[in-house]
Design a binder for these strands. Structure first.
Lengths: 341, 341
DNA sequence: TTGAAAGCGTTACCAA
DNA sequence: TTGGTAACGCTTTCAA
């Protein structure tokens, strides 16, 4: 910048003005400065700028997601990016893979970077460690999972409701033996979905068979194994609820290799891009990823605009998308009969 | 930092040493400094650090992809993140949506941020504008698309080969009327895939029917429309090649609503997570996204380690994954007959 | 409209 | 093992 000033025959301050598009520089001087900058391959240094600026915004927002390669996280990231772009914010994305220590490390890094805000789909269960950052003015928005030991903005989905709807829908189809596969037990959303499953059974007056409730299923392959095992029971389930997209996919594979995908009902949590192309098309509980991402962005931008007030907790309703797999009725129990049950 | 130094009763430099884990600070002093930092909620400022450091690394790598919400970009991003994490680099991800101006803007931003390197799946066709950055020492790695007017590292896939294989595979299945749906014409990979399609037809001695080659198909819905239109031709195609994952999905929808998904063959470019669950399971040309992302990361890290030498251009071979949709034979032409054709 | 000087938080360099 | 001082590239403040 000094060099540019020298070449243009002006002061450093003037160059700064031109570079930042501030008023107070004659057209002639501006021209001269820009030409000099061009000639010298000058590049503005945002780091130095941020350092000195009064309102020191780094223009970076950290997005700590479970796995940016998974369609849920990826869709969220995309929606978030879109809503932050217009405000001139860039997104630094990271995958946590359910590892709390990684979360801590990345948060520390982003704090050191002076990120303007953090979006967190946490891997950790307790979040007291963020209180000091929040007090220091760092806007925090939790997504998909609620904060614990910390009160900050959040956007979540009513998981209990979603799982209840999924399970009830199957019960309406005449099913009495509905199995549930759920994600790692430590994850709160998984617990909530299990709660929804239990609630729906109870509401229908069905007793829970513990052998049909399998928590801590780890991924596609594990889901396939579990489903195969359940199908081999003496009194196997006639319907499945799966607690997350990868588990749904694993379940479909297992049903298919057992040749039962048209006999056994399935409702999956999380929609995904080709769920309607699977045979039978998959009935799912859909979370509106676009909407969630947009709301997260809006909350963050509001805080950056100085919005005070207590943390907001948005809870969106997931919806049941009927496509076929969830409408398979129980053997000997046509749907209509079941309805008047 | 000054405050910490004061509270700990040491000099600023000493605090700096402790914070950076440098040698030359007694255990006792270190303890004292850390306690003071804790008490004052001190947070290291990476921006200021980067500014002053000799080897001024920002620790940020920019990843400019087409759409971080699409499974191809998302998978790439994830693989890249993994390979850069161990080197302590964070990824700033952005979606370009085939908009060259957005690319320019984001590159400018990342340059101003002093990113340590850039990974580019460009939306623009000419890349001279990056030459000065490269000369200034910024490591550049292109992915999926080659640089033009700029010579830098790249990792691409042999698109001609992939499309040739797809088309030849269908021809081997006895098909004589093979249609091709391709992405926006400006995109080089789309051109290459068309070239592969032409080459395979030529090699089989088949004449290209211009009405069966549809370039610039825009997305899922557009692909569905195009397929429906082609099926309504007097002499419709008996097989399709689609030039990218979203087009494949659109094609499947159209075939399905025409009730022809088991009569008409289809080979899609790009694999995606549930391609094996679609009915019939989709035969695809797979690009190994994991591998591509890892190679990109390695190239970048090599350059950051000071690797000189001419740019490297990695060209990976895509592979044909047979799953069913591509093995549907032409009416009246069983596969074996076709083979001996 | 322009400029000089101070300072943002940190590290480099050299001296103690 | 420690500290003082300059400097990184920029913006702020105030004066011209």
């Amino acid at each position: 910048m000094k060099d540019v000033a020298q070449l243009a025959g002006v002061s450093v301050k003037t160059v700064s003005r031109v570079v930042n598009g501030e008023a107070g520089a004659s057209v002639e001087v501006r021209e001269r400065v820009l030409r000099a900058a061009e000639r010298l391959d000058y590049r503005h240094n945002l780091g130095a700028s941020t350092l000195r600026r009064k309102d020191s915004r780094s223009g970076i927002v950290g997005a700590l997601l479970q796995d940016v390669g998974n369609s849920f996280s990826a869709g969220l990231l995309r929606a978030l990016e879109d809503s932050l772009r217009e405000a001139g914010l860039s997104v630094l994305a990271a995958s946590l893979d359910e590892e709390p220590e990684r979360e801590r490390g990345i948060v520390a890094d982003l704090v050191a970077r002076r990120a303007d805000g953090l979006v967190l789909m946490p891997a950790s269960r307790r979040h007291e460690y963020l209180v000091s950052e929040q007090r220091a003015g760092l806007p925090l928005v939790f997504v998909d999972r609620r904060p614990h030991g910390l009160d900050c903005d959040s956007v979540t989905v009513d998981n209990v409701l979603g799982a209840t709807r999924a399970t009830a829908h199957l019960i309406e189809g005449g099913h009495r033996r509905v199995a549930m596969l759920s994600d790692l037990e430590e994850i709160e959303t998984a617990q909530e979905r299990i709660a929804g499953y239990r609630a729906a059974l109870a509401a229908a007056g069905l007793e829970l068979d513990p052998s049909l409730l399998v928590p801590s299923v780890r991924g596609e392959e594990d889901a396939s194994r579990v489903v195969a095992k359940l199908l081999a029971l003496p009194d196997p389930p006639t319907a499945f609820v799966t607690g997350r997209n990868t588990l749904t996919i694993g379940a479909v594979r297992a049903l298919r290799s057992a040749g039962l995908s048209h006999q056994i009902a399935l409702v999956g949590f999380d929609d995904f891009p080709t769920a309607d192309l699977v045979e039978p098309a998959l009935t799912v509980i859909r979370q509106d990823v676009q909407r969630i991402g947009a709301e997260v962005g809006r909350l963050l931008l509001d805080r950056l605009d100085g919005a005070a007030g207590p943390p907001k907790h948005l809870v969106l309703e997931p919806s049941l998308v009927r496509r076929g797999s969830g409408e398979i009725t129980a053997p000997g129990r046509p749907r209509t009969a079941a309805r008047s049950d």
